[in-house]
Each structure stands twice: as structure tokens, then as C-alpha cells.
Design a protein around this nucleic acid. Structure first.
Lengths: 346, 346
DNA sequence: GAAATGCTTGGAACTGGTTCCACACCCTAG
DNA sequence: CTAGGGTGTGGAACCAGTTCCAAGCATTTC
């Protein structure tokens, strides 16, 4: 690359302002140890020379890069859900004058920890202070990150296969209470034949199913899980679940979808069958994604505060950096049921 | 913050391997000036001590941070469209061992350049080598960026109010030919009464309208632009355009939507009116967003290669960094019409 | 056998900040 | 008038790398 011209340094400023380099540094770091006159003279010189301190040099001495990495793993695409988490991270970070690096990673759940090919950000040293893990997270990745002693916080809802171990910081939202709440709502609206549609081999959908089951159990109703086979996507899953739902006797009056995409699939397929939502069947979703507002009428669903998840991850990571020996913590953020147009009073 | 323990440095390695520090540096930078035996001895020592060079220190000397910033401006939310561009940037960057910082910025189009409050990333010096601008970009922001002499590449489709000046590097896609192609397709399918739905006060929708107009003109057909008033969103716009479309005599047999969201709004509202797509009216969109596949049948639309835009931005930025004095360049990437289910042969 | 050449290697000097110690200066107390 | 304390300031030393020059040694050329 072509050489970059030499820039104004702290020594140039010191000479121009006829003070020592230490004084410049003190002014830059707003140390109280500088007299008002000197400070003003230095500030004027800084402005005159258009001096901006070199960020890298400070970082060596501070032993802090003031950067964190948002690592999205095993997602072919940065979905709006994760994009919003990223935005939460960024917004909190920029208030703290911290910077956010974005990186993506693909690995197989079966790759042993030391064989996982980390992205360039993690191969260098001193580049980032910590890591926020999002996307689908398998134990091997966590082990790998731990092995390089990089502080991290994980978005916990998509952690797969970790049992109940609590060997790392995590932030998530409440799958269980989300569906518990929406199921109770349906029951309060007079529904009795309520099914759950979702592939419960995903741990997070499993937790949502458990919330639904608890809600049904509280009112002594029988839980029913609908499981479509051979589906490509969640929308597909919803679509293919409709036949199974309609063939049940007595016919269900409401469905709790594992997420909004499944709900969307259900809605689209019900439309084809000329079954009205919520006239003939009521529907609730989960996540409050874009799809919820695209439906007609708009979907009643469980809202997850995605930006807040991001902010909380960032906050927790900063705390971890301040207190490396602190006990691991876990935050479960509450969800909120939003009433829109897809549930009918029976 | 708690002090970070001192790490292994290049001098520790030099001592352990009984060589000079220069040799370690040469090994790290795979200089050919090192004998095979020495290189192997050093590499072994590096592995034994678990040494990883400090990235910051190198950056001071290299006068390059190997980082670029993806700056999203004036978007309340990182939409999938921009998210995909970001992913393209990241994927190309990580191949080149470059890192990508994510930052967001909000400013009013009327804020004078020197009053725009830049995000922390841009306030520091030497933190990033260059910038990729995405989101809605007004001239004042460009001037501001130019004033701090930060190399940048802009995603040009959402640049507003710059006339035809070409005072910066830009990458975009072909709005004009996209609609030209889709309009021709509709005409080839036998359609004659074709309307365009979109708010042409947005420059990019204006360009799409011009493409449509050219297509109509080629076949000596009369272009008609449908413009809904007082709408909150593009979906809304589409929805509110339906009445206007249906009241035209003769009744249009096809509509070219300014983008997929408008197309979605049209579709949803047509459904309410019990008008079949494509049976009664054909529909084409633009962008190939998520909405296109959520429609039933799936929308025939103009695909934009979002990852490719990101990759091209990154590629162009790297070139700019290598050749600061190079003439500004502009790349317009082609679009692709994808046939799905919303156009009927007349 | 001497001179020239090429390949390795060591380490001082450097990058652009921060930190810390020594010292000058002023004011107050004894 | 001197001792003591606080404040403000200069700059050497430092951080962890890279660069470059000088020098050592082996080999080749005349």
C-alpha cells in the first residue's frame, strides 16, 4: 500500500504549544493536574494543528482495545431478530465509547473445539476485549472460546445441548412464561381445544411448548403438539401443520405457534383452505417479528425486546471486563404479550 | 478496570529461542530472509509459549488498522436488505484479514456538515482505514466525511440529492434496467394496461419508474403512475393504492410495484377485495426481499444481489486505500428478473 | 589466496501514545 | 527566614511491535 504521510503527533503539539509531552497527554485525558491557562493554550494548539490522537498507540499502553466483537455463528443470514440484537449492542456500546466489530462464523456442531477455525478477529491478540455470541451456539464453540481465555457473553436462547451448566455469562428471554401467558390468554378468551405447532427438537421451541403445556395443565386441559414432517423452513412447517390441525376431532379453535414464522405458515395455508382467522380459528405467535405485522389481521404474539437483549449483553460484558473473577451471571428478560387481531372471543 | 496480566511478548520468545527480536518479527511476517532451521525453532517456541502477537502494536508501525467501518445512516433499523450488504462486506473482508466495525448514525438532512455528530469510531484517529456508507445518504454527510479525509465507498442507490456529481466512489445496482426488464416481461405476456405503484419522490423509485416508462414507451403504451397519499410505510402505500388501481377504466391487468413491500401491500389488499393474483391481476415487485416469498403465490420480482453489493463495496474500498489518488469510480451491478407465480399469460 | 557476493542474523532506533518520578515554584506555618 | 506541603510541569522510560543497518559467515569468482 502507498505510504501514509506522517501525521501530527503529540510531540509536534508539545513543541508548538511550548510545553512538555506529558502535559499534552494530561490535557487529552482531562487530568485535573493542569492549570487552566496551560490547558487552554494546549487546546487551542490542538485545534490549530487539527491534531487527533492515534487510537492504536493509546491501546497498547492501556492494555484495552475498547472493542468488542459481535459474533454470529451458524446462520446463513443476519435475520432481523439478530440484527436488532446487534443494534442494541451497538447503541449501548457507542454510549460507552466502545466499538463493535461484526464477524460471522460457520462450524459443525461435531467439530472438536480445537479444530474450529476462528474468524480473523479472534486469531489476533489484543484486538478485542470481549465477545458477544449470537446465532446457534454449540458446546464445542463455547469450549473453544474459553480455551483462548476471551471473556464473552452468550445470547442464551439459541444455545444447544449445554444442559443446565452455568459456566458462562448469558442473557436471554423467557420462552416458558411467554407461551404460558399467551396460552392463558386464549383460555381466558374461552378457548379449550388449543394445539401447539412447533418442532420441539429445537430446545427453545421445547421450552415454549413446556410453557404452553403448563398453561393447559393449570386449566386441566389436554395439551396437543402438532409436528409436521420434512419441512424446509418454519413457514413451511406452519403450512404443513394445517392439515393435521384440521383433521383433529373435536376441531381445535386455537393454535399456539412456536414462533411467528410458523404462525405465518399456518395463516397462509388456512387462507387457502378458506378458513378465517380469527373467525374460524384463533392464532398466537412468538417473537414479534416482521411477519406478525404482515399478516391480515395482524398477529397477536409474544414480544421479545431484541434491542434490550443486545444492550444487556453489552452491559454484562463490560461488567465482566471490569471484574474478571466475578461469578457467572444469567439474565432472563421478560416477554410481553401483544394483543392484535388474531384471537376471537368464544 | 482491573489490570491485565503481562503477556508473552516478542522479546520473551526471542530469549527463549535464543535469537534476536528481529528474527521473530521476520518469522511472524513470513519474510523469506530466515533459514528453515531458525524458522522452525522459532515457530516451535511460539507454540510452546502460546505466543500471539499484539495487533495494536503492529498497527502503529504499519500505519494501517486493517479495519473498516460499515456505517448505517438514518435507518431506525438494520433491514435484511442492508444486513445482507453488511454480510457481503464481512465475508469479503474476512478473506482479506480485514475487520469490520458496525456503527449507526442519525442526522437530519439539514444539519450543516460540520455540525453532524459523528459516531465514536470516526472521532478517533487511526482506528479505521476507511468507511462503507449505507442507509440514506444526504450530501451533508458526504461533505462531512470528505472534510475529515476518510476514504469511503457509498452504496449509491439511497444517496439523495447529489445530482450527477461523481466526487466519490460508489457501488449500486441498476434500478432503471430492473423495471425495464420486468415491464417488458409483462408486455411479452400480453399485458397492455400496466400501472406503476410507488412514491416517485424517492430518487430510487423515480429511477424505477423511468425504467417502467421506457418499457411502456417501447411498445407505445401509456405509462400510468399510481400514487397513494398519507401512508406510513411502503406496505401501507401498496395497500392504499389498490382502490386507485381498481377504479381505473379500462381496468389494469398488471401492476409494477416500486418495491416488494409495496407489492406485498397490493397483494394483501387485493385479497381483501377477493381479487385473485395472478388470475385477475398480475404483479411484479423489486428487490427480492423476504416479503416476495411470503406472498401466495410467491412474487415474481427483480432480484438484487445484496451480498455482491457489499463485496464490491469492500473491494473498491481496498483499491482506494491502495491508490489514494486513483480517479473515483462507480459500479452499477446488474439485476435479475426472477419468475415466480404472480404473472399470468393473457 | 584475495575479493566479491549472498544469505542470515542481532539489535538499536523507531512508532505515538501513557506513566511516573524529579523538580520548580508558591504559599503557609513555625 | 526556613521547613513543609501542595500544585504544575518536563521528559525519560516504557509498551510491543517493525525496520533497517551493520556484521558474521559461507560460498563463489577471478
Amino acid at each position: 500500500m502507498e505510504a501514509v504521510p506522517r501525521r501530527t503527533t503529540i510531540r509536534d503539539v508539545a513543541q508548538a504549544a511550548a510545553v512538555g509531552i506529558g502535559t499534552i497527554s494530561r490535557v487529552l485525558n482531562s487530568s485535573p493536574q493542569v492549570s487552566r491557562e496551560t490547558r487552554e493554550r494546549v487546546l487551542k494548539t490542538i485545534r490549530r494543528l487539527g491534531f487527533r490522537p492515534n487510537a492504536q498507540a493509546r491501546r497498547i499502553l492501556k492494555r484495552r482495545s475498547e472493542m468488542v466483537c459481535f459474533l454470529l455463528s451458524n446462520r446463513d443470514f443476519l435475520h432481523p431478530f439478530h440484527a436488532r440484537i446487534l443494534q442494541g449492542v451497538e447503541s449501548y456500546a457507542s454510549d460507552l465509547k466502545q466499538h463493535v466489530l461484526f464477524a460471522a462464523l460457520h462450524y459443525s456442531p461435531r467439530t472438536p473445539p480445537d479444530r474450529i477455525d476462528l474468524p480473523p478477529v479472534l486469531q489476533e491478540h489484543g484486538l478485542i476485549d470481549g465477545l458477544i455470541l449470537a446465532g446457534t451456539i454449540y458446546p464445542n464453540l463455547l469450549r473453544r472460546i474459553q480455551s483462548i481465555h476471551m471473556p464473552f457473553v452468550a445470547f442464551s436462547n439459541n444455545v444447544v445441548g449445554m444442559g443446565d451448566e452455568q459456566q458462562f455469562d448469558q442473557v436471554g428471554f423467557d420462552d416458558f412464561n411467554g407461551t404460558l401467558q399467551s396460552t392463558r390468554y386464549l383460555i381466558a378468551k374461552g378457548h379449550r381445544q388449543i394445539v401447539f405447532a412447533g418442532d420441539i427438537s429445537y430446545p427453545w421451541l421445547r421450552r415454549r411448548f413446556e410453557g404452553y403445556r403448563r398453561g393447559m395443565w393449570e386449566s386441566k386441559l389436554k395439551p396437543v403438539s402438532i409436528m409436521a414432517r420434512n419441512t424446509q423452513s418454519f413457514v413451511d412447517f406452519g403450512q404443513n401443520s394445517v392439515e393435521r390441525i384440521l383433521s383433529r376431532r373435536p376441531r381445535p379453535t386455537a393454535a399456539v405457534a412456536g414462533n411467528d414464522e410458523i404462525a405465518y405458515g399456518l395463516w397462509r395455508s388456512l387462507q387457502r383452505h378458506e378458513i378465517k382467522v380469527p373467525g374460524d380459528i384463533s392464532l398466537v405467535g412468538f417473537d414479534d417479528r416482521e411477519e406478525a405485522l404482515l399478516m391480515d389481521p395482524a398477529l397477536s404474539t409474544v414480544r421479545v425486546h431484541k434491542e434490550e437483549i443486545g444492550e444487556t449483553c453489552m452491559k454484562m460484558l463490560i461488567e465482566r471486563l471490569h471484574h474478571p473473577r466475578m461469578r457467572f451471571s444469567q439474565r432472563i428478560l421478560p416477554t410481553e404479550f401483544v394483543i392484535r387481531g388474531t384471537v376471537r372471543q368464544l
